[in-house]
C-alpha cells in the first residue's frame, strides 16, 4: 500500500495541533466540557492519524511506548490521586487544591482531580493507541499475505 504524500504532510501538520488541543481539553476539564477521557481520545487520534499515514511499524518504532505498561501507569496515577484524598482528607478521592498565584500568568489551579484526570488521560490514550495499532498491524499483515 502506497501512502499519499498529501496525507502524510497533513498528518504531520495536524499531529501537534491535536496533541495540544487534547492537553487543553484535559486542563479545562474540571469546570468546562472536556477532561481526561475526551482529551485522551483526541490525543490518541493524533497517533491514529500518524498510523494511517505512515504505518503502524514506523509509528511504533518512533514512539517506543509500551502501551500496556503505560495503561497501568495511568491507573496508578489515578489511584495515587484518590489515595491522597483518603490519607490526608476524609474519604477516597477527596479533593485537594493547590492555587498559587503566578506573576504575569494568573491564578493556577491544580489539584488531585486534575491528577486523576491525567491518569484517565494516560489510560484512554494508551488503550486507544494499543487497540488501533494492533488492528493496523493486523491489516498490514493481511496486505502482505
Amino acid at each position: 500500500m502506497t501512502r499519499s504524500v498529501f496525507f502524510k504532510f497533513l498528518a504531520r501538520l495536524m499531529m501537534p495541533v491535536l496533541l495540544l488541543f487534547s492537553l487543553v481539553l484535559l486542563l479545562r476539564g474540571h469546570n468546562q466540557p472536556g477532561g481526561g477521557f475526551v482529551g485522551g481520545l483526541v490525543g490518541a487520534s493524533s497517533i491514529v492519524l500518524m498510523t494511517l499515514a505512515y504505518g503502524a511499524d514506523d509509528v511504533r518504532a518512533r514512539l517506543r511506548i509500551d502501551f500496556l505498561r503505560a495503561m497501568f501507569y495511568g491507573v496508578g496515577i489515578a489511584l495515587v490521586a484518590g489515595l491522597i484524598g483518603l490519607i490526608f482528607g476524609d474519604a477516597f478521592q477527596d479533593a485537594f487544591w493547590w492555587k498559587p498565584y503566578i506573576q504575569g500568568v494568573g491564578r493556577l489551579e491544580a489539584g488531585t482531580p486534575l491528577l486523576f484526570d491525567v491518569g484517565v488521560y494516560v489510560v484512554v490514550f494508551s488503550v486507544t493507541c494499543s487497540i488501533v495499532m494492533s488492528m493496523a498491524e493486523e491489516g498490514e499483515r493481511d496486505d502482505v499475505g
Binding site: 497501568f72 491507573v75 489511584l79 483518603l86 477516597f92
Partner: peptide
C-alpha cells in the same frame, strides 16, 4: 478508611502484578 481498601488493594495489586 478501612472499607475502601477491598477496592484499592486489588487495584494496586493489578498495577503491581505488571512488574
Amino acid at each position: 478508611m478501612l472499607i475502601i481498601l477491598p477496592l484499592l488493594i486489588p487495584l494496586a495489586m493489578g498495577i503491581g502484578a505488571l512488574i
